[in-house]
Design a protein around this nucleic acid. Sequence first.
DNA 1: AATTTAGTTGAACGTTCGTTGAAATTCAAC
DNA 2: GTTGAATTTCAACGAACGTTCAACTAAATT
Lengths: 253, 253
Amino acid sequence: MQKKGTAGRTGAGRDRLPRAGTAGTGSRSQATRERILDAAERLFAQRGFYGISVRDITGAAEVDVALASYHFGNKQGLLEAVFMRRAEDLNAERSARLDAVLAAAKGRRPPKIEDVIDAFTHPLLDRSSRGSPGWKSYFALIAEVNNSPEFGGVLMSRFFDPVVEKFIDAIRRALPDCEERDLYWAYHFLSGALTLTFAETGRIDKLSGGACRSSDLDSVHERLVPYCAAGFRALCAAKRATPRPSRTAKSRK
Amino acid sequence: MQKKGTAGRTGAGRDRLPRAGTAGTGSRSQATRERILDAAERLFAQRGFYGISVRDITGAAEVDVALASYHFGNKQGLLEAVFMRRAEDLNAERSARLDAVLAAAKGRRPPKIEDVIDAFTHPLLDRSSRGSPGWKSYFALIAEVNNSPEFGGVLMSRFFDPVVEKFIDAIRRALPDCEERDLYWAYHFLSGALTLTFAETGRIDKLSGGACRSSDLDSVHERLVPYCAAGFRALCAAKRATPRPSRTAKSRK
DNA sequence: AATTTAGTTGAACGTTCGTTGAAATTCAAC
DNA sequence: GTTGAATTTCAACGAACGTTCAACTAAATT
């Protein structure tokens, strides 16, 4: 049940990739890569990795089918290239915003949870609703991958967990008494709420009788931040409340 | 880029399905159906609808490949049958629990949000962690489908939205001043957090350095309920505070 | 201008895809 | 035990799958 395509593979196809440094500088090659990436991004987002063939992608990109293998090695390499292309820009802004929030609260009291969450989510929702159309596909793809047992644990971790750790560390400062596990599970809930939003499945539209629209990401964002902020606080407050530690001795920073 | 399998289909294949009432009563046929459904459930959950072939499924079920078409019409019919098989039992208990929560608060004050959320989520998390192994696959499949642009809006709605509406109505009573859109978006966040949990991708395990385990659904549940309850309250409280409507005139219904 | 290199093309490979048709088997009713 | 329907088997269909190969064009280097 494993291998779908031909099995006649001996090497890996990778050995024929254009060398990273030398190639890709020509504008012709670069344009081809981008066309393929654009099409792959859009189609993978619609039907997932297995639901789209390499020929679907190169056909939509109007390039020869062999160019996918030439530029990205194989289908999985293409998927990872789609992931990587926008991840760098994304992580850079998220990281900078987190730094800014922490710097603004410097020395003084801990940062506000809402500000930390906003620093983490705003770059995403803003690009999805106001960026180029490719961004919307990109996030829809992330939504699908994040909930996939096969790819979720590896791809998401590889590309996004460094900045996620930075986010969790900022929350840790905002809620110094919070237990570690509560912190991570609360992030997990945020991640799930956020990625389902990106999927834009239209289910909420139907359910709400049209009152809510999946594509209205601004409405989502202004609710997601207070929702999750309250969730973070509730989890941490609960743990401080029940075992009832002396509260003067325990509340240390 | 659309049709993957053969295109020579004229009718629908459905016309050869065993008639619902007469067939399926024989224990031989019923056992075959269940074997196929079990295998499909497990494999679809692992790699999604397109990542698994009909031959993968019938091979794992150790039945002839033609039996999938015979019993379920086609591949999509098989997916829907997998969905349907456990949905009825699930919806029945969720609905009964919601009724119980509402009945317990009858006449008196509104029900507690935590109780409503628990009635909605407990039947799922309990079956996933303590039910037969098929249940875990079932929920992992739901996690993937819920975040799929292609299937999320239709399959989830078809099988689960009736009881979801009942859930939202119960929350509406718990938070009578809440605006409709806030209610639906808050449910959306709950749905995302819940379904990402079901995916059990292992990402949280890595991220937390082993402190959290994806498979520890009890830990998730005892955090999901207060997290989302606080989120619901925060959304509704926010709307009551800022625009300050007369609150007697606006509290509709 | 000649030669190397990067990029592209079109065709083909062996395999797997979803589905079907006809024949064979099993079962229930008589 | 025969009949008729329900179920299972086996083989095959044409299409689509991921990938590769050798030939070819365009660009860069000498």
